[in-house]
């Protein structure tokens, strides 16, 4: 839903970042307003995933230029945990397994960290169980997954549902979902997409990072950005996604080459 007067939640300007000695982001500009759903599409290696990691504060990535402002605050100064508590959420492409750490306990600690930030009361184990059982419905997840270690032995689809469950509990204002559709079968994709749609409200912004347009059939984006060589090359509406689907990414290369020549 596009409302030009809606609050700007996240503003990225001229963002450059590298990992070790490789420059990956080379000047990204992007503005997310409340109520908007954005999709960033692009080939592998275009810098999509790096963008998501940089926004979440992964220590392996170094920002070399540019600014990221989250609700008026310099996001880049904040630790990953501060970003999360303030309402920035990254749904991982490959959620890691953490043996020995109970999923339920992890979800509770994370939820309480966010609640404390919001000035809300921390939930004890009983109150949290009630909350988590209700939120499980968003992703139609079996409560048995709560008793296991974080992501340990989960299938690809279960891991992604667990990501969306975390999003449902943390109620972020900006949700960045990195290739949430990868590795999902049709049914799981439908469930995850329905969950994401349900959580996208007039107060939140969603950034979907995806390679394929099939996720966008389930979640309609307001904006589609095509990323290549660490920049956003083109921005359009959902028709841009369809065009990509039809023509493939080759024209992106041509456009990029033209740009570099020019």
């Amino acid at each position: 839903m596009i409302r030009p007067d809606a609050d700007v939640l996240l503003e990225i300007r001229g963002l450059h970042a590298r990992v070790e000695d490789n420059a990956i982001l080379k000047g990204v500009d992007l503005t997310l307003r409340a109520g908007e759903i954005h999709a960033v599409m692009g080939r592998n290696g275009s810098g999509k995933s790096t963008l998501s990691k940089v926004l979440a504060g992964h220590p392996a990535y170094t920002v070399t230029a540019g600014t990221v402002t989250y609700r008026g605050q310099n996001l880049l100064e904040l630790s990953p945990e501060e970003r999360a508590r303030l309402g920035v959420f990254l749904g991982f492409q490959y959620p890691v397994e953490i043996p020995g750490v109970s999923n339920l306990e992890f979800l509770r600690v994370a939820t309480n960290a966010r609640r404390v930030q919001l000035g809300q009361e921390e939930l004890d184990t009983f109150a949290f169980e009630d909350l988590v059982r209700e939120r499980l419905k968003v992703v139609q997840m079996d409560p048995a997954f709560l008793d296991r270690s974080v992501n340990e032995g989960f299938s690809g689809g279960e891991k992604k549902r667990n990501e969306i469950l975390q999003m449902a509990l943390l109620e972020p204002l900006v949700a960045i979902l990195d290739e949430t559709d990868s590795g999902l079968d049709i049914d799981a994709l439908r469930i995850v997409a329905a969950g994401v749609s349900q959580l996208a409200t007039a107060d939140t912004a969603t950034l979907l990072i995806t390679h394929y347009q099939r996720l966008l059939e389930a979640i309609t984006p307001d904006f589609v950005h095509v990323m290549a060589a660490g920049r956003i090359l083109r921005t359009g509406g959902r028709e841009l996604a369809l065009e990509l689907e039809e023509r493939g990414y080759d024209w992106v290369d041509q456009e990029l080459a033209a740009l570099e020549l020019g």
């Binding site: 979440a56 504060g57 992964h58 220590p59 630790s79 990953p80 945990e81 970003r83 999360a84 508590r85 990254l90 991982f92 959620p95 890691v96 953490i98 750490v101 992890f106 600690v109 994370a110 960290a113 966010r114 930030q117 974080v150 975390q166 943390l170």
Partner: peptide
Amino acid sequence: FYLQSRGI
């Protein structure tokens, strides 16, 4: 990083 990115 995963745990931190959830506010821990």
